[in-house]
Amino acid sequence: MLKKLSPGLKALAALIVLVLAVTGMRLTALDREPPRIEIMALSRTVKNGGCAAVVIHLAEENPGVIRLFDSAGGVFFPAVFRTNSYYLCLFACPAAESNYSLWVIASDTEGNCVTNKIPVVFEYVDYPKGRVELKGGFGNDKLAEMGLPESGLTGTNLYAYVQSCFLAKTAADPLKLSLGPVPAIRGDFRFPVFLPLAKPVVTSGFGKTREYYFKCKKMKQSTHYGVDMIGTLHDTVLFSAAGEVVFAGYNGGWGNTAIVGHGYGLYTLYAHCSEVTVTNKQAVFPGESAGYTGATGEVEGEHLHFGVMVQGVWTDGAEWMNPEWVERQINSVLGKASAMITARTVQ
């Protein structure tokens, strides 16, 4: 039966099962009043490949579960914002979506549930497509980079073999690392603007689907879920926000990589480094170094691949590098909700 449902309805069905399980399925409870949901502040729009924020007030003395789910099948975990009964959630629309809807489902401990649609406006972006002519890299030099012996292969056979080695050397799936519950936010908070290099020059943007050819043969096709940039040779890669390293090391086609969780479901990735100078579970702070730009992994020239993930979805890192976007799309939502919460507390 579930096979006939859309991804969004599948997510709703799964969440209802979760809600009933958490609340103990106490359907005979005397309290039959469902929780009341108030959308306090919301980003006006979200694009495919974009991120937005919402602050929700759950008017319920005995709250149970609150989750957001979307038409793409995604499930997002809100975090308590400032004080109990108020929740902040970052959510993101996958780049491949051509339309988008979002809902919130909430329950109380008596098993009463309510679902409301969140009125965010979807803006579709038609990302470009392109062709990349490989110059002959991804050969024995990449095998040596991975600590492997020369294969004796040549041409497209060597390229295909190196690709399989990259896959075998992939130690972590970045999207899986960005899933799961997020911590509470106490007090006022503002998200930073990310600037991974001191003076970055962007060479390739987010969302482009690229076909890779080697000696006139198509080798693969992939979508670019990050922002490529260059600076000086072996430029210092910088953190712009505090967080904790969730992965540091060699990661197949990503090369030397650092992935940092900043809380609230937001993660950043720094790939193809010549060297990573942080370790797993290390606390990091703004202005500290993640490592140095390089050409490790599945690349032919030195650059930094900067990726941003929100609870299992790749989002456009160029937005997070734009001060106007961060203020309008994210921080103004938090500011509006904070002012409303403060006014209610004073009363």
Rank of each mutant, 00 (worst) to 15 (best):
K3G: 01
P7Q: 00
L9T: 10
A11H: 05
I16E: 06
V17M: 11
L18G: 04
L18D: 12
L20I: 14
V22L: 12
R26Y: 12
D31N: 15
I37A: 06
K47T: 15
I56F: 09
L58N: 05
A59S: 13
L68T: 09
D70T: 04
S71I: 09
A72F: 09
V75L: 07
P78C: 06
F81W: 11
Y86K: 02
L90C: 11
F91M: 05
S101T: 11
S107Q: 04
N116E: 15
P119A: 09
F122P: 02
E123W: 05
V125I: 15
R131D: 13
K135S: 12
K135P: 00
G136R: 00
G137R: 04
G137A: 12
M146W: 12
G147H: 02
T154K: 07
G155H: 02
G155M: 00
L158Q: 05
A160V: 13
Y161C: 10
S164Y: 10
L167P: 01
P174S: 10
P174G: 13
L179R: 05
V182G: 08
A184L: 05
I185M: 09
R186G: 06
P192N: 08
K199C: 11
V202D: 00
G207P: 07
T209M: 12
R210A: 13
E211D: 14
C216M: 14
K217I: 15
M229Y: 01
D235S: 03
V237S: 05
V237K: 03
L238E: 01
S240L: 08
A241C: 10
V246S: 07
A248C: 08
Y250S: 08
Y250F: 15
N251F: 14
T257G: 02
A258W: 03
I259F: 15
G261Y: 15
G261I: 04
G263N: 08
G263Q: 03
L266S: 01
Y267E: 00
H272W: 04
C273K: 01
E275V: 10
T277W: 04
V278N: 05
N280M: 12
K281G: 03
Q282E: 15
G287V: 11
Y292L: 15
T293Y: 05
G297W: 01
V299G: 06
E302S: 14
M309W: 03
W314H: 13
W314T: 00
W320M: 15
N322K: 03
P323S: 06
R328N: 11
Q329S: 12
S332C: 10
S332Q: 09
L334F: 15
G335S: 02
M340V: 15
M340H: 02
A343M: 08
T345A: 15
